[in-house]
């Protein structure tokens, strides 16, 4: 279980271009951070660097548990959810098949997947193929994974963008519950998060 994530003096680039450098911030249990910045500033790259996909140019990301520092690979494979623009849902499979697989793979159980279905009001969608869902419905199916497989760190890329107002409120409740349970949220956003969050601006330092 991760209780603290610290980003220390992190610089990330794509190809020849440096996106941001010298970024430091920390995230403790129960805290949320909203990443803001212009399009292309590197918000997604930062999320992918924290998830271990993008190797930073400098600096490091450290994960600490209750009993001291954790091995990054292990902490990542057990402790975080990454939800980006690409949700990994297969168009030809039904919402339930996909949610069930993603939940089991991320360490949840079939019962927890069913509980998440209730929470996110997904029941009418379960038998539909993913290709028949709207953008907002797809997003709700992929968000259900967060509730179904408990992992402390949520890395979210524009999580609420396609959702309607009511669903945003419901997602806010879900996020608040996650934080209250000692979880952490790092989200790239343009609109404010529905929960109290620190704000970290990316790309301002690099001209």
């Amino acid at each position: 279980m991760i209780a603290r994530v610290s980003v220390e003096n992190l610089s990330v680039g794509r190809g020849e271009r440096v996106l941001f450098q010298g970024l430091s911030f920390a995230l403790a249990a129960g805290e949320a951070v909203a990443l803001i910045g212009a399009n292309g500033a590197g918000k997604t790259s930062l999320l992918r660097a924290v998830a271990g996909f993008v190797r930073p140019l400098h600096g490091l990301v450290r994960f600490e548990g209750a009993d001291g520092e954790r091995e990054p690979d292990e902490a990542r494979s057990q402790g975080l959810h990454l939800l980006g623009h690409h949700d990994g849902l297969k168009p030809g499979r039904t919402a339930w098949e996909e949610l069930r697989f993603q939940t089991l793979w991320a360490g949840g159980t079939e019962a927890s997947a069913r509980a998440a279905v209730e929470k996110l009001q997904l029941k009418p969608l379960l038998d539909l193929e993913i290709r028949k869902l709207s953008a907002g419905q797809r997003r709700r199916v992929s968000l259900a994974r967060l509730a179904a497989a408990p992992r402390p760190l949520w890395l979210l890329d524009e999580p609420l963008a396609p959702l309607d107002a009511e669903r945003r409120a419901r997602m806010g409740e879900l996020m608040a519950a996650h934080l209250a349970g000692g979880g952490m949220i790092l989200a790239a956003v343009h609109d404010p998060l529905p929960v109290p969050a620190k704000t970290v601006e990316i790309g301002a330092a690099v001209a």
Partner: peptide
């Protein structure tokens, strides 16, 4: 390729 394009490979990498 299909898992790479739709992001499922991220998910598979962050699994058990």
């Amino acid at each position: 390729e299909r898992d790479y394009e739709d992001g499922a490979l991220d998910l598979l990498t962050l699994g058990p």
